[in-house]
C-alpha cells in the first residue's frame, strides 16, 4: 500500500513503502522549481488553507510555494489576526473554513496531537506542519530526501540528532523515518534535553559527548535550541552549551570521515552550530530548504489523489 490516505499526520504510522513513494515522487517534482514557468496545473481548482497557530516563516512559505507550484489556491490564516484570538475553538475555526468549501488544511499548532484531532473531525485532507513536540512529518521527509540524494540509500547509514531532542518534533519525525528506511539513529545532548530513558523511549543510541557522536556518525542533524519552549533552567547558559555541545569546525576536523551537516532552522549561530560549520562545505542546510518545497508538492499530490468512488467511472487515459 503506497497511497497515503486522507491525511499526513506523522511518519510513525507510515510504512517504509509509503515514505519511499513520497521521496520518489518528490524527485521529479524538484525540476518544476527550475523551469521558467514554475507551475504545473495538477491541483487546479483545489483550495488549501494554511492554518498557522504558531510563528513560522520557512515552513509556511515552503508550503505556500508548493501549493502555488501545483496550481492550488492557497489562503493563509495566521493566528494573530484571526477569530481564534477571540476565543473560537480549533474545530469551530476549521468547520467555518470548511463551510467555505476548502479541500485541504495545513495546520501548525502548539499542542501535540492537534493535527489528528482536527483530521478526525473534518472531511478535508489534513497535513501536519508541526504539532507541539509530537511530529513535523514534512520536515522529517525533506531531511530524508536530502540525505538520500547524497548517499543514494539510507540503509546502514548513521545519523545523529544533536541537541534539544526533548522539545523537538523534528527529532521524532526523523527518528521514525530514518529507522523505517534502515538507517541507524542516535541522539546526543545534555540529559536535561533528552526524554527520560531516551535509549528505551526512542529506541536509539545515546551519546553524552558530542565528540563521541561525531566519531560515530555519517551525518549530524543539529536541532535548534528551542529557547521559547524552555521555561525553566534546562541548560546553565548558552555559552556553556556551545562550549560542551556546539558543533564547531575544530570538532568536525577531528572526525574520522566527512560528516554531512543538517539543521532544520532557524539556526542559533554560535550556540548549537558555529557559522563556519553552517556555511561550510559539508552543510546541506540550503539543500534542505530547496527539497522542502519538492517534498511538500509530493505530499499535496499524493494526498489529493484517489477518490475511489470516482475511480470506477474513470477511463484509461494512458496509452
Amino acid at each position: 500500500m503506497t497511497g497515503l490516505g486522507k491525511d499526513l499526520l506523522d511518519l510513525e504510522s507510515l510504512s517504509a513503502e509509503q515514505i519511499t513513494a513520497i521521496l520518489d515522487t518528490a524527485e521529479p517534482l524538484k525540476a518544476i522549481s527550475l523551469r521558467a514557468i514554475k507551475k504545473v496545473p495538477t491541483l487546479r481548482g483545489e483550495t488549501i488553507v494554511n492554518l498557522f497557530f504558531e510563528a513560522s516563516t520557512r515552513t509556511r512559505v515552503s508550503f505556500e510555494f508548493a501549493e502555488k507550484r501545483m496550481s492550488a489556491d492557497a489562503v493563509n490564516v495566521a493566528i494573530g489576526n484571526s477569530s481564534v484570538s477571540k476565543g473560537e475553538t480549533l474545530v469551530d475555526t476549521a468547520r467555518n473554513l470548511e463551510a467555505m468549501k476548502i479541500d485541504m488544511v495545513v495546520i501548525r499548532h502548539q499542542a501535540s496531537g492537534a493535527a489528528r484531532f482536527l483530521a478526525e473531525r473534518i472531511e478535508s485532507n489534513v497535513i501536519n506542519a508541526g504539532d507541539g513536540t509530537h511530529e513535523h512529518p514534512t520536515q522529517g521527509l525533506l531531511d530524508l530526501l536530502t540525505l538520500r540524494d547524497k548517499w543514494g540509500t539510507l540503509k546502514g547509514k548513521r545519523v545523529c540528532l544533536c541537541g534539544d531532542v526533548l522539545h523537538s518534533r523534528v527529532a521524532r519525525s526523523n527518528i521514525h523515518g530514518l529507522r523505517k528506511l534502515g538507517a541507524e539513529v542516535a541522539v546526543c545532548g545534555p540529559r536535561s534535553l533528552l526524554p527520560n530513558g531516551a535509549e528505551e523511549a526512542l529506541g536509539v543510541t545515546v551519546f553524552d559527548r558530542i565528540e563521541a557522536a561525531i566519531e560515530w556518525a555519517d551525518a549530524l542533524n543539529i536541532l535548534r535550541l528551542q529557547l521559547e519552549r524552555m521555561t525553566s533552567g534546562y541548560i546553565p547558559s548558552l555559552r556553556e552549551y556551545n562550549r560542551v555541545f556546539g558543533v564547531t569546525r575544530e570538532r568536525l576536523d577531528r572526525a574520522p570521515r566527512d560528516l554531512l551537516i543538517l539543521h532544520p532552522g532557524p539556526m542559533n549561530r554560535g550556540v548549537e552550530i558555529d557559522s563556519d560549520v553552517a556555511d561550510g562545505p559539508h552543510s546541506l542546510i540550503l539543500d534542505q530548504v530547496t527539497n522542502g518545497v519538492a517534498v511538500r508538492m509530493a505530499v499535496l499530490y499524493l494526498l489529493r489523489g484517489g477518490r475511489p468512488d470516482l475511480a470506477a467511472a474513470g477511463t484509461a487515459a494512458g496509452e
Binding site: P28, V40, P41, L302, G305, G306, G314
Partner: peptide, 23 residues
C-alpha cells in the same frame, strides 16, 4: 516528457499515478 501532472483525469483515477522525469 512526463505528462502525469497534466492529466485531465487525476480526479478520477484511483491511487495517484507515479510521476516520471521531464527533461
Amino acid at each position: 516528457l512526463d505528462i502525469t501532472l497534466y492529466r485531465d483525469d487525476l480526479q478520477t483515477v484511483g491511487p495517484r499515478p507515479l510521476v516520471g522525469a521531464t527533461e
